[in-house]
Design a protein around this nucleic acid. Sequence first.
DNA 1: GCCTGTGAACGTATTCACAGCC
DNA 2: GGCTGTGAATACGTTCACAGGC
Lengths: 244, 244
Amino acid sequence: MSTSEQTGTDATTQQKRPAKRVSLQTVERLSVYRKVLEELDRDGVENIHSHDLAGLVGVTPAQLRRDLASFGTFGNISRGYNVYQMSRTISRIMGTDETQSVALFGVGDLGRALLSYRGFEERGFHIAVAFDVDGEKVGRVFAGRRCYHVDHLETVLREFDVRMAILASRPEGLQALVDRVCGSGVQAILNFVPKRVSAPGGCHLEETDIASKLEMLSFLAHTDATAAHTASLEPGEPAEGMTA
Amino acid sequence: MSTSEQTGTDATTQQKRPAKRVSLQTVERLSVYRKVLEELDRDGVENIHSHDLAGLVGVTPAQLRRDLASFGTFGNISRGYNVYQMSRTISRIMGTDETQSVALFGVGDLGRALLSYRGFEERGFHIAVAFDVDGEKVGRVFAGRRCYHVDHLETVLREFDVRMAILASRPEGLQALVDRVCGSGVQAILNFVPKRVSAPGGCHLEETDIASKLEMLSFLAHTDATAAHTASLEPGEPAEGMTA
DNA sequence: GCCTGTGAACGTATTCACAGCC
DNA sequence: GGCTGTGAATACGTTCACAGGC
C-alpha cells in the first residue's frame, strides 16, 4: 500500500481502471451510502464508523468497507469516516457533484410526474427540456420546462448540452428514438417504457419496469403464504398441465 | 456453513424453508420472460426453444433453462416450450394469475401518475383504493379510485381485501405508516419514497429509488468518459483530499 | 440431428479474520 | 481497547458440457 497521506492532488474525478473494475451492485450501494451520509450531515454528524453507517443502510460493515476500498482510502483510522468528505467523494465518483442536464421524452402522466419529482434536483439532476410528439403538448411549458417536438431533438439536445435522457413515452418507435438520442451525444438513458430496446455501443441504457417490482413482491408474498399451507410445486415435477 | 443443503440426486429441497429457495434475480428475470412470452403469444407463436427465447430477452440459453428449472419441468423436449402454457405458469408462480388489489398511499404527482399507469392492470395489479392526508384530496375520486383518509386505512384495507401497497407519500411518518399497513394484513409494500424504512417480519418491502438509477447511469457514463482520457488512479490511493 | 434438464466447473460477490494503526 | 483495509475463505450465481429424450 502506498503510505501517502494527504496527497493534495487536485483530484478531479476519480474512477477505477477502465471500465469493469467495480461492480454495479457496489455503485448501487454507493448511492445509498451517500443518501444516508447527507442525512447525517444535515443532522450535524461529523464522523462515523463503518459499523454504524453499515447499520443505518442495512449492509454488513465488511461490505461497506469493501465497497469503499474499490475507490481508495476513505477513513481516518479510529476516527472513522468524515461524513461530509465521504459524501462529496461519492458524489464525485458518481459524477453528480455538478448538476447534469437531463432530457425527458414523453410528457404523459408519468412524464409530468417526473418533471415535478423533487428527488432529481436534490441528487444533482435537472430535467432541462422535454419532448413529445403530441401537437397539444409541443410548445407548452410543463413545470417550467418547455416541450419540444421530437423531430427537433438533435438540435435541442445539443443546445441544452444534454448527456442523459429519460424515456417515458409510448412504446411505438422507441428503438428508433433511442438510436437518434444516442446519436446526439447522449451517453446514458433511463427507460421507463416497458419495452425492450438496446443502445448502440458507448451509450448506457437502464430499464426501470415499475410493474416488475410489484411482480417480485407478489412472488415473495405468495411464496410465503403457500409455503405455510401447501407444499406448492415440487422441483422436477411438471410445472403445469403440459397438454402435449 | 450451517444449513448446507444436500442437493444430491433427491431434489426435493423445495418446501423446507419459506422464502429463499430461488434467488430474487431469477424472479426478476421470470418477469421479463413472461412479458416477452405474452408478446409472442399475441403474435401467434405457439412454441419456442430456449435459445430463441433467451435471445429475445437477452440472457444465455443456459441461464434461461436454469431459471425455469428452479420451478420444475417446463419444456417438451425438441418442441421447446409452449408459449401460452409457460406464460400462464410463470404468472401462477408469481401469483399474478389473478388480479390483485393494491392500495396507493399518497395522491401527489407520482401517485396520480401511478393511478393512471396502464402497466399495472396489464400485469395483474389493480389499484383499488387510494389514501392521503390532505383534506383537499380525501373524498375525491382520482382516475376512478376513491381517496380515503389515512386514518381509516385499517378498515378500508380490509374492506377491499388489499394485500399489497404502494407508497408514494411524503416521507414524514413513513415508518409509522408502514407499521400500520403491515398490521392490516398487507404482505408486500413497494416504496417509492426516498426514505429508508423497514417492515416487520412477514411483510416484504421493496425500495424503488428513481434517482438512484440515474446516479448509476451517471457513474457509468462518467467512468467511460474519464477512462478514455486518463489512466485514473490505482486502487489504494487516497480517494480524496482527506483533511486529516 | 437438436432439444431440455442438470451435475460440475467456473467466476464473482460477500463474509471472515487478522495485520497494522491509533 | 477499537478502528480500517485487505488477503483468504466462503457462498452465490452463471456458464459449460453432457446425459437422456424426441
